[in-house]
Amino acid sequence: MNSQNIIRRSATSSLTPAPQIRDHQVEVAKLIDVTTCIGCKACQVACNEWNDLRGEVETNVGVYDNPRDLHPDTWTLMRFTEHETEDNGLEWLIRKDGCMHCEDPGCLKACPAPGAIVQYANGVVDFQSDNCIGCGYCVAGCPFDVPRISKKDNKAYKCTLCSDRLAVGQEPACAKTCPTGAIAFGSKEDMKELAATRVAELQERGYDNAGLYDPAGVGGTHVMYVLHHADEPGLYAGLPKDPKISAVVEGWKDLLKPAAAVAGAVAVGAMAAHFIGVGPNTTDDDHPDGRSGLRPEDETDTTEAGKVTNLPRHAAE
């Protein structure tokens, strides 16, 4: 992977696409097996280490989530959910939250800064922070509530899927460090196969609804989950069941934008045609040869004005 493998670039028209010619790379994916995760947070630490992040130390608020939320300094976060089953059992559902690296990224669609968000041929969606202007549109575009804007530098941050490690043939830091093997990394095809094997195992053990989370609404993702309750992803700290780019964002980009372009062009064209057709609207007294001169001395009330009576008067200042 190198910088030439950018196949999608924010704020770039389809008429002037990002480089397409070398798009033959294997698509990669990270597979997070939620059923094998023990919530040790080694992945969080590895992420901070590799990416040189030092989040502020917060106070305990009575839950295991630490820090409390994703942050410009926290690109991945274990979210803990205590789920009571129908037979009064307890399931501790732990989901490693972070960027899902959508095939059809809402952040990239919404971003107005050219090249601030890119997608590589291998599927990684990356923020190029030096191009970021800090408008926060990516926050509105994301169906997973992932990007965070830093108060220090007004720039957006999120998981890069360790694009710098992938570039030199290494796996992401979180996958490298996971002690239970809950995070696997490889080609998307291989990861789907691995997931299928694991899902079959889980179903054999009584998790009838076990399945792979690779939501089609965003074209699939390059971070996927194996869930025991794939029918209810919302159980896992509100993982959306059918994530899609919001209809509001789509309307803004796919309807309003072209409509506004047409309106602008029509307006300019109409004004130019009007000026060419009618010519400047000069004051008759300044141009005695002008047509239809109206002099104060020949004011006769033969016009429509005569029909209107009792007009309110507005004295000029």
């Binding site: 009618v278 008759d284 239809s292 016009t303 429509e304 004005a305």
Partner: peptide, 20 residues
């Protein structure tokens, strides 16, 4: 309302009518 009824002559820079 006079202006609205005569918007065409306004746009054609026809100043013959008094539009109040």
């Amino acid at each position: 309302s006079i202006w609205f009824r005569n918007v065409k002559s306004v746009l054609l820079a026809d100043h013959s009518k008094k539009l109040r």
